[in-house]
């Protein structure tokens, strides 16, 4: 699915102290994070119904008397000036005290803590599969661009990239779950609890869905990156210097071609947690995506705030990680005393 937001690979920054550079990036992301936190803080206050809806369904709220409302407002500080409320909010974020869910009264932090590992398992497995398959095909497609197969694979990638995730999930359920009964279609564990086999079985269909729909994009990205590196001057010159083709591809093409792909995949990981909403919903997988969707559907504001926080945090962290790891792969992004 095209829910991936690829950012342009960070342009190498030359002639700047490495620490200053990294420090600058961290500060930039911190700023973005603070803005995102602010949005998150304002969210329940901005949506219809006002902040009191943090404490119950509309029906319950309607039954409250004016005194009771006032009491809740004082108790939770809604009467306080907005900046004090914001500080309180920041404090609660830092201390991971995210309140309790309105729908089932659970501690939000605990609910997220339960869901997060499942999402990480699901997303992690599918990212590994997508990356391996997508990059392999992309590299081959880039090398064999002139042959008919190259164009065929490209069209194939476009088709695969166009299938809606939820529809593919349905088809997989129909065939593998219902008709042939090969794989379970529901939940993350079998009736016998957490066994490795059970976990793996329950991963098959959701991971297949995420992988198949994710391959096309990585394939096309890798392929076009390969093409531009293959026609770049350093590679043309290496060819002229008599470096044989196999060695040329291995040593001179692959690494520069995969540099932007690395950034893409890092960002992808950040977004997949949010992108897994559909898959987790269809397969009733108990991860963060399903938790988020459930929270929105039930208008469970504390839970919503909590899950949004984690989702945004993941994106920002992966962005930061992409920036921090890039210099390890590209010497041009490294500066300072390595001469």
């Amino acid at each position: 699915m095209s829910a991936i937001q690829a950012s342009v690979p960070a342009t190498p920054v030359a002639r700047r102290g490495r620490l200053t550079f990294l420090g600058g990036r961290v500060l930039e992301y911190l700023a973005v994070l603070i803005v995102a936190l602010t949005l998150n803080f304002l969210l329940p206050r901005a949506l219809p119904g006002g902040p009191l809806k943090l404490f119950g369904s509309p029906e319950a709220l309607a039954r409250l008397t004016a005194e009771e409302r006032a009491q809740i407002a004082t108790e939770y500080g809604f009467g306080d000036p907005i900046h004090l409320q914001f500080l309180d909010y920041l404090h609660s974020v830092v201390t991971l005290d995210l309140g309790t869910s309105l729908s089932d009264g659970r501690d939000v932090t605990a609910a997220i803590g339960d869901a997060l590992p499942w999402t990480l398992l699901l997303v992690g497995t599918s990212i590994v599969a997508t990356t391996l398959i997508g990059i392999t095909l992309g590299v081959i497609g880039g090398i064999r661009r002139r042959e008919g197969k190259g164009a065929f694979t490209l069209t194939g990638a476009i088709v695969v990239d166009s299938i809606p995730q939820f529809w593919l999930a349905m088809l997989l359920i129909v065939w593998f779950g219902v008709k042939w009964q090969i794989a379970p279609t529901f939940g993350a564990t079998g009736p016998d609890g957490t066994t490795v086999a059970g976990l793996a079985q329950h991963l098959v269909l959701p991971v297949a869905t995420l992988t198949i729909t994710g391959i096309g994009y990585i394939f096309m990205y890798t392929r076009s990156s390969m093409l531009s590196v293959l026609t770049s001057e350093p590679v043309q010159h290496a060819h002229a210097r008599g470096i044989p083709r196999g060695r040329l591809v291995r040593r001179h093409v692959l690494r520069p071609a995969l540099l932007p792909v690395h950034t893409l995949i890092m960002l992808d990981i950040g977004f997949l947690a949010a992108g897994a909403i559909v898959v987790e919903t269809v397969f009733a997988y108990p991860g963060l995506g399903r938790l988020t969707f459930g929270a929105i559907a039930a208008r469970d504001y504390p839970l919503m705030q909590g899950t949004f926080l984690v989702l945004t945090l993941m994106v920002v962290l992966m962005n930061l990680l992409a920036d921090l790891t890039y210099p390890l792969l590209d010497p041009r992004a490294r500066t300072g005393g390595d001469r």
């Binding site: 994070l33 947690a273 949010a274 988020t292 962005n319």
Partner: peptide, 21 residues
Amino acid sequence: RGIDVMLVLPELVLFILAATF
């Protein structure tokens, strides 16, 4: 900077949120 912030927010979640409310 505005675009940077927008790009950090997951699109699908925003859609679901907006459509719900």
